[in-house]
């Protein structure tokens, strides 16, 4: 319950923050993952750099066909943003599944992505949405695709001293159908599996399918085999079943007290089927 002693700073300016991070500071975003593990003494950063006062990291805006969300935008802000709900409903839906009211009030999209918990809700949608992350460090900025960003369990493309500053999300085709379906671990509320689906149809055929999966493997991933199987089909129940069955292809499933690897694999298929069915039915 009591963390180790640490130094604390709360810069209001991004540059200043990046400078402090460059000299070994640990970034604190919403703190929903970091603070609990600090309290259990599983983490003991010497210097915590609180990003919570950098106003310039908290925004949602639309620019030329993309939504831009500052890294410090909270799950609640995403969940309740009329802009996100209309222009990228999948992200709002995913945000509404995270944790609980209090966690959504504090937790941030940047913090969640940077933590790269293999069972977090956001990454499935971020994968399906093919977002990009703008990263910054004291030595400059760069943009990486979501696929390059999530590297492994709790491991991302972030270099020491580097943080996410922005998530860039393509505005959804208004005719697309989306859905995030999650099997909830009863104690923690984390996803046993979570599947985010985006479907675009044209002339009665699925022209584009995007499927992001969390909870199943060491990191969130795109189920490309499933996507391929669905694209070009009419999206019938049989088509969906076939695609859903392929959702776990090439992934070594996680196992824990709440779900064995085999069960998780099967549930990924079931929830992929559900997410795809809803998404297909919502696509116009």
């Amino acid at each position: 319950m009591i963390a180790h002693i640490f130094e604390y700073s709360a810069p209001t300016d991004l540059k200043e923050a990046l400078g402090q991070l460059a000299s070994g500071g640990k970034p604190l975003a919403g703190g929903m993952s970091l603070i609990p593990i600090m309290k259990l003494r599983l983490a003991a950063p010497e210097h915590v750099v609180d990003l919570g006062r950098i106003v310039a990291l908290n925004y949602i805006r639309e620019e030329a066909g993309t939504l831009h969300a500052g890294a410090m935008t909270t799950h609640y802000q995403i969940e309740s943003s009329p802009l996100v709900r209309s222009r990228c409903p999948l992200l709002a839906e995913a945000a509404s599944h995270i944790g609980d009211v209090q966690v959504r009030n504090m937790g941030t999209i940047g913090g969640s992505a940077a933590h790269a918990d293999p069972a977090a809700d956001y990454p499935a949608s971020l994968m399906a949405l093919e977002v990009q992350f703008r990263l910054a460090s004291s030595s400059g900025e760069r943009t990486v695709s979501v696929e390059d960003f999530f590297v492994d369990t709790f491991a991302t493309a972030l270099q020491p001293g580097e943080i996410i500053t922005e998530v860039i999300i393509p505005v959804e085709d208004p005719s697309a159908g989306v859905s995030y379906q999650k099997m909830v671990q009863p104690a923690s509320g984390y996803a046993i599996v979570g599947v985010a689906a985006r479907i675009t149809k044209s002339g009665g055929k699925v022209t584009k399918a995007r499927v992001g999966v969390t909870g199943l493997g060491p990191k969130a991933f795109r189920a490309k085999a499933a996507e391929k199987l669905l694209e070009g089909t009419e999206g019938t129940a049989a088509d969906i079943a076939k695609a859903a069955a392929a959702v776990s292809e090439g992934v070594e499933s996680n196992t824990d007290l709440h779900a064995s690897a085999n069960y998780r694999t099967q549930m990924a298929r079931v929830y992929a089927g559900r997410a795809l069915s809803v998404a297909v039915s919502r696509a116009t």
Partner: peptide
């Protein structure tokens, strides 16, 4: 907020 998951300085 859950005040056990926030430092007073925040």
């Amino acid at each position: 907020v859950k005040s056990c998951t926030m430092f007073a300085v925040q």
